[in-house]
């Protein structure tokens, strides 16, 4: 599992619940080190151990924990670069949903050894979409639910998201778009502000 993904989980736990909780999770998961390096690769067993340990220590179901992780990836200020990269996916939320199928390829453009979940999108009319999610780890669909909910906010769209369970090797996420221009959304300038 790519270090970037492990590192995101670590940062989510640290930024949301504090450094002490992360240290506890790292010990409980028997990582043998105190921090993931974002540019190295790790055995997927470690990722699973971290998710399980966090769920036990925080006393929160895996599903809600993973959903919060998805939301964190888009909405936390420390991950602004990631939000920006996702926003390059499309001008509006529907455009963005269509770009999800390109996500693994976009990821690999940035980092050739980065494995992202495979996403398949089916448009069902009347603003209904079903996204099938597979790869990385069980429950990845819940991460996508949280991420899409936050992205809808970011675009100013009003959408309902729902994890529909597993079918045919993939988790199914339903998106019901009620209003694409519900709110102003967050600003996105194509070119990054000069630093």
């Amino acid at each position: 599992m790519h270090g970037l993904i492990n590192r995101s989980i670590q940062c989510f736990l640290r930024d949301t619940y504090g450094a002490a909780i992360w240290d506890h999770v790292a010990r409980e998961a028997r990582l043998g080190f105190d921090s993931f390096e974002p540019m190295l690769n790790y055995d997927p067993v470690l990722t699973e151990a971290v998710v399980q340990a966090a769920s036990v220590i925080l006393g929160r179901p895996r599903e809600t924990l993973l959903e919060d992780l998805g939301t964190y990836l888009v909405s936390h200020q420390n991950l602004e670069p990631l939000r920006r990269l996702l926003r390059f996916g499309g001008v509006g939320f529907v455009d963005f949903l269509h770009s999800l199928e390109d996500l693994p390829e976009r990821g690999r453009l940035a980092l050739p050894d980065l494995d992202l979940p495979n996403l398949g999108m089916t448009e069902q009319g009347d603003g209904n979409f079903v996204i099938s999610v597979s790869g990385l780890f069980p429950g990845i669909g819940h991460v996508i639910v949280g991420l899409l909910r936050a992205m809808a906010d970011d675009y100013g769209a009003l959408a309902l998201l729902d994890h529909r369970g597993q079918s045919e090797e993939a988790e199914q996420v339903a998106v019901q778009l009620l209003d694409q221009r519900f709110a102003a959304g967050r600003r996105f300038d194509l070119a990054q502000a000069a630093v």
């Binding site: 970037l4 390096e37 974002p38 540019m39 190295l40 670069p81 990631l82 920006r84 990269l85 390059f88 976009r106 453009l109 940035a110 980092l111 194509l190 070119a191 990054q192």
Partner: peptide
């Protein structure tokens, strides 16, 4: 191209930190 430029800077930033 803008996407790639930003993705590249993010990756280079991580590598520099590493």
């Amino acid at each position: 191209m803008l996407y790639l430029a930003e993705a590249k800077s993010a990756v280079v930033g991580e590598l520099r930190d590493l």
